[in-house]
């Protein structure tokens, strides 16, 4: 879908929210929902940060690490891709304390979602690094660069461009997954919706607003990633021309 259509959808979603906000039946719920949305955004940002770190570390470990590290990274990726996000969230929340490690709910949310998406991200990073042409590695070897220098100066800058679109999808997945944290008592957007619904039974206005608010967040993220992708590939093209 073109970036123009996405922007149009975003404008339409904001316009609908704006119109609904003038109706008392809807505006009543806005402050509470916005409060929830702030928590949603916080968890999404911190979770994404952790996901990127874990994704890069796990990919590098699997590609270039010594055997035990490689093995550890593989186990991490398989476990977090093979079980579901909600199971991981519950495990960290309910089971981990039994091993003497008690994290607060917010930390559990960030860690679970970050580790979950990071596992998928490591596959993205690995694929992107492997897709950089062999000639580039050979040229680096011919220049007598160390492996760390090759990665940092030559390979990663090229791989990053290929990684942007799939990471964009992963960030969207993570943003949507933040709704699961409502099930471990965190007062995010989904939690607020459930709570207000139980108190007022004004189901239609509440869930309509919530869907629109998630839509706005997703679209902003999608459009942002598209712009980033455009800039990055333009940079690479310029590099090619030079």
């Amino acid at each position: 879908m073109g970036i123009g259509t996405l922007v149009a959808m975003l404008a339409a979603a904001l316009a609908v929210i704006g119109v609904l906000a003038t109706q008392q039946a809807y505006s009543l719920f806005l402050p509470g929902l916005l409060q929830g949305a702030v928590l949603t955004i916080e968890i999404a940002i911190l979770g994404s940060l952790l996901a990127v770190i874990m994704g890069v570390l796990a990919a590098l470990a699997r590609l270039y690490g010594p055997a035990p590290l490689r093995w550890l990274a593989t186990v991490y990726v398989e476990i977090f891709r093979g079980t579901s996000a909600l199971v991981q969230l519950f495990w960290l929340f309910f089971v981990l304390p039994q091993f003497g490690v008690t994290l607060n709910a917010f930390l559990v949310a960030v860690v679970a979602l970050g580790l979950n998406v990071g596992a998928y991200g490591s596959e993205v990073v690995r694929g992107a690094i492997l897709s950089v042409a062999r000639g580039q590695w050979e040229a680096c070897t011919a220049l007598n660069m160390s492996r760390a220098q090759m990665l940092r100066r030559v390979i990663l800058p090229q791989a990053v461009v290929a990684m942007i679109p799939p990471w964009g999808n992963l960030f969207i997945e993570l943003l949507k997954s933040t709704s699961l944290v409502s099930l471990i008592t965190l007062a995010d957007l989904a939690f607020k919706a459930q709570q207000m619904n139980q108190n007022t039974f004004k189901t239609i206005p509440i869930f309509t607003l919530v869907l629109l608010m998630y839509l706005v967040m997703s679209l902003v993220l999608t459009i942002g990633m598209r712009l980033l992708e455009r800039r990055a590939s333009a940079g690479l093209a310029r590099g090619k021309a030079a």
């Binding site: 969207i172 459930q194 998630y214």
Partner: peptide, 15 residues
Amino acid sequence: RSTPLLIQIFFIYFV
């Protein structure tokens, strides 16, 4: 695809 499955489940179940 832009909205969480959990909210869609709630939507169908409650709305």
